[in-house]
Design a protein around this nucleic acid. Structure first.
Lengths: 194, 194
DNA sequence: TTGCAAAGTGAGTCCAGACTCATTATCTTC
DNA sequence: GAAGATAATGAGTCTGGACTCACTTTGCAA
């Protein structure tokens, strides 16, 4: 167990339940906006609770961060799964890549997540889940002939993570994002000069 | 003037001169190792001076950072210039790219620089100088036919910056670095599928 | 309704790191 | 080599942000 969230067996009281949801929602917004460096104070304020309440639910900032990150990851994994489902044309990987980068350009939390920045929690196993989902898309793409067979998962993940960070930190606009991704995609395709 | 470094017209006293050099050397090491988040205290310790001395030479941490960044940038620009000089075969851009990423994987300061992280100083004009140097390499590459004519400078800089950050944060080993760069380079080449 | 355990509150603690300044030490000049 | 200017020193201040806890409030079971 890497993240603790004060989890007694007993069910939560109604107000506690409500506040927990509010805190998570606020944290998602705040971390998306300011990245993992945002203060817990800010989260509490946006959730409309006292700071002590945040710490009652999530004993450390890291625990809160971990909870949010899990949510973000789950979203990415789900998207990958969906794309894998209805895209047998092998374009799922490209679509996933583009959407994730676009999301990262807006939500700092995504980029921070892929960058493993600031979160001390052991996310490896969680990232592995994402890796597996992306691997599925990669296999589909290779099978459909849209990605070169020599391409392996690690470099795809590496490209994904770095592009997300770059897009965020560099403040890329839509056009630059597109032009940059075009180059990466071209490099992934079979028949690219090597 | 964006960076102040307590610069009276008068020449520095001998001990001051010596300490300034020590501080810069120490800061370069420390920032390379820990990134811009390293403390001024650590720099002072490594330089063998009191913290007050560091602040006498560089009134704010940011001024110190700016001085180091200028040095790092100058190094990159010089490397680009050298490569542009003796590489009319159009491979200068690729070599520069690979070396810079490799350097970033080791020196956090380089990645932080390209990421514009933490340094509040207006580096744009400095980064522009680097951009111009890279533009030279890009022009050479296009002329030599090693890079597609559709490729523009912004996306090259974007790829460079993001790859540097990715390599550092992701802790890429030499092999992953190579495999990842191979994809990007393939995407840059003329005749890459688009 | 009531009693108490669960939850909320927010002022306060703690700490790290940037920055200051009165004091002391060191150059440099004449 | 003395005097005054320049620089070094490091304990101390200040600030922001994580985290605590004595006390108050609230939900729920009996």
């Amino acid at each position: 167990m890497t993240s603790r969230t004060t989890d007694p067996g007993r069910p939560l009281r109604a107000d506690a339940q409500r506040n927990r949801v509010r805190i998570l929602a606020a944290a998602e917004e705040v971390f998306a906006e300011y990245g993992v460096a945002a203060s817990t104070e800010e989260v509490a304020a946006r959730a409309g609770v006292a700071i002590g309440t945040v710490f009652r639910h999530f004993p450390t900032k890291n625990d809160l961060l971990a909870a949010i990150m899990k949510g973000v990851l789950a979203g990415l994994v789900e998207e990958a799964a969906t794309l894998g489902g209805d895209n047998s044309d092998g374009t799922g990987l490209f679509t996933f890549f583009a959407r994730t980068v676009e999301q990262a350009a807006t939500e700092k939390a995504v980029a921070d997540l892929l960058a493993r920045t600031g979160v001390e929690i052991q996310l490896p196993e969680l990232l592995d889940v994402l890796g597996e989902a992306v691997h599925g898309l990669l296999r589909q793409a290779k099978a459909a002939g849209t990605v070169d067979r020599q391409v392996r998962l690690p470099e795809v993940m590496a490209l994904l993570a770095s592009t997300c960070q770059g897009a965020l930190n560099g403040g890329w606009d839509a056009e630059l994002r597109e032009r940059t991704l075009a180059i990466i995609f071209a490099g992934l395709r079979p028949g690219a000069p090597r």
